[in-house]
Computed example of a mutant assay.
Amino acid sequence: MRVAAIDCGTNSVRLLVADLGGAELVEVERRMEIVRLGQGVDRTGRLAPDALERTFAAMRGYRELIDRHGASATRVVATSATRDAANRHEFVDGVREIFGVEPEVISGAEEAELSFEGATKGLARLSPETGMPEGPLPPYLVVDVGGGSTEFVVGSEHVYGALSVDIGCVRLAERHLRDAGDPPSAAALEAVVADIEAALDSVAEAVPVGDAHTLVGLAGSVTTIAGIALGLPAYDPERIHHSRVSAEQVHEVTRRLLAMTHGERAAIPVMHPGRVDVIGAGALILDRIVRRFAFSQVVVSEHDILDGIALSIDQKSR
Rank of each mutant, 00 (worst) to 15 (best):
D42C: 12
D42K: 08
R43Q: 14
T44G: 00
T44F: 07
G45N: 06
G45R: 00
R46D: 12
R46K: 06
R46T: 13
L47S: 04
L47R: 05
P49W: 06
D50L: 12
D50E: 04
D50Y: 01
A51P: 08
A51E: 01
A51V: 02
L52F: 00
L52A: 04
L52H: 01
L52I: 03
L52E: 02
E53P: 00
R54F: 02
R54V: 01
T55E: 04
T55V: 07
T55C: 10
T55Y: 01
A57K: 05
A58M: 05
A58N: 08
A58E: 01
M59L: 06
M59P: 04
R60S: 07
R60D: 07
R60W: 05
R60V: 05
R60I: 02
R60T: 11
R60Y: 05
G61H: 12
G61A: 11
Y62H: 09
Y62D: 10
R63F: 08
R63E: 13
R63D: 15
R63T: 05
R63G: 11
L65W: 01
L65I: 04
L65D: 06
D67W: 08
D67C: 14
D67S: 14
D67G: 12
R68F: 13
R68I: 02
R68A: 13
R68H: 06
R68E: 11
H69Q: 10
H69T: 06
G70P: 12
G70D: 12
G70R: 11
G70Y: 14
G70H: 15
A71T: 14
A71Q: 09
A71H: 14
S72C: 11
S72L: 14
S72W: 14
S72H: 13
S72G: 15
